[in-house]
Design a protein around this nucleic acid. Structure first.
Lengths: 255, 255
DNA sequence: CGACTAGTTGAGGCCAGTCAATGTTGGTGG
DNA sequence: CCACCAACATTGACTGGCCTCAACTAGTCG
């Protein structure tokens, strides 16, 4: 029933009692993220239909797995709260984090093409996601042009982001990668109404390294160096960026 | 009129006379690639509609640019013949090849989300593409479920491929990258009815390096080493793979 | 034939990885 | 509240894989 890190979303059982109260109240309509999420631009009626389709709004504890690579693909997930990482594994266990996803982001799109998830998604902190059964979503998109458009746009943006990552992993030096990473975080926090210059990292040094194609020691050294150079202040996972222009110079606008 | 490397598809003018004869004869219906391309699984009537939508079937000379980064996005392109690379450029000119695309592949999907192309597509050899105006394609997909499905699947597969590339660029060593690259080529040639063990590279050493996040000298050295070790025979761009299992072992099934 | 592009090979350097020791933080239970 | 532990982070010394620079060869095209 309750695996240490359950692979399935909580059903309407036991501990979910208090959860369902929450569930009943949270709708796309009232969601803070509706302007960043799939509902963006949808007419009220369309929004209602999309909302009805959301199978459940589930909680994930830190380190809990939303889906694993190889699992059959059934739904897209919108992040309501918290953040997740997606990772792919090499055969020998080497891990590459392919995405760092925060509130409003859509997860699972890599599964559409093959009916199987190609990566795994793991919560970086306690999080909440909206599960949208894909078959029904696809069906709904057939009737609502704006939804089809949104789906295609979200998938496409994913591709664009990935291409940026490839440039980073293939051509940028370590310091440039970290600068791009920090600026990217900064921008995304800013979009979401948080400070662009002061935030808390949700990942360990090792995870940041895995994301950037570096080792944790390299990440740690770079943070120390950036701090020495006055670019930022780092204290554990708390980051304060002092010199944004210098950071941008380092990143060479590849972010 | 005639730029050295024209950015626009040839219009129905001048030299296009012999071309238009060809154009009239080539339809999705009769295209060899219809089983790998957007029409896959479409009903005859839907296929006819998709076919009508194809604005033109254009030829590209080697090194000709199909679209550039920053150009407004207007159409997806299906490769009818030949092959193209897509590249993203760092601000300082460093170039990362993000994709090697061959017959049947769809290009331009990174532009959907932002209305602007995020990379540039360049012909690696004389090629032919079918241009599909995206607005009309989207509109048609609204009416034809199978087409919507195909579009979403193609976009999604792109994402899956990109994630594999990220793993490669972030975590694999040079020899592993080249092995993965060769096996990937092998598989795709095989899918298209060519020999999986004997083929001609369409890219220079530098381009292969750019694709794999390596320098051309490294690629060259690796080819030489693989040959010494009896894995393959390489003569310029002609590749004969002798020891597929060993190559797969090197790649660690990350392909 | 000369100029140019593509490819190969060698020598040496450097950036990031590896290994290892030590410090810091946060959660748990006495 | 503090001691303890495990996970996370920092820092140093050293290594090595890939890059850089460079020389040379082969093939192509005007």
């Amino acid at each position: 029933m309750s695996h240490p890190a359950t692979r399935h979303l909580p059903q309407a059982t036991g501990t979910a009692a208090s959860l369902s109260i929450q569930q009943l109240r949270t709708h796309c309509n009232s969601c803070n993220m509706r302007e960043l999420c799939l509902p963006v631009g949808l007419a009220p009626d369309a929004l209602r239909q999309l909302d009805e389709l959301v199978a459940n709004r589930a909680r994930l504890k830190k380190n809990e797995v939303l889906y694993r690579a190889g699992e059959t693909f059934a739904a897209l997930y919108a992040i309501r709260l918290g953040s997740l990482k997606t990772t792919v594994l090499a055969e020998d266990g080497r891990e590459q984090i392919t995405g760092y996803h925060m509130i409003g982001d859509i997860l699972g799109m890599d599964g559409i093409g093959s009916a199987v998830h190609g990566c795994e998604a793991i919560a970086l902190e306690d999080s909440e996601v909206c599960a949208m059964p894909f078959e029904r979503l696809e069906h709904l998109a057939q009737a609502i042009p704006a939804l089809q458009q949104n789906l295609l746009r979200f998938l496409s943006r994913n591709i664009g982001r990935d291409q940026g990552m490839m440039l980073m992993l293939g051509r940028l030096r370590a310091e440039e990668r970290l600068a791009v990473f920090l600026l990217n975080l900064s921008e995304r926090y800013h979009q979401r109404g948080y400070s662009p210059s002061e935030f808390v990292l949700r990942m360990t040094r090792e995870e940041i390294g895995s994301y950037l194609g570096l080792k944790l020691e390299t990440v740690s050294r770079l943070f120390s160096r950036f701090q020495e150079e006055g670019l930022l202040q780092v204290s554990g996972r708390n980051i304060k960026i002092f010199d944004m222009p210098a950071l941008k110079l380092l990143a060479g606008r590849n972010c």
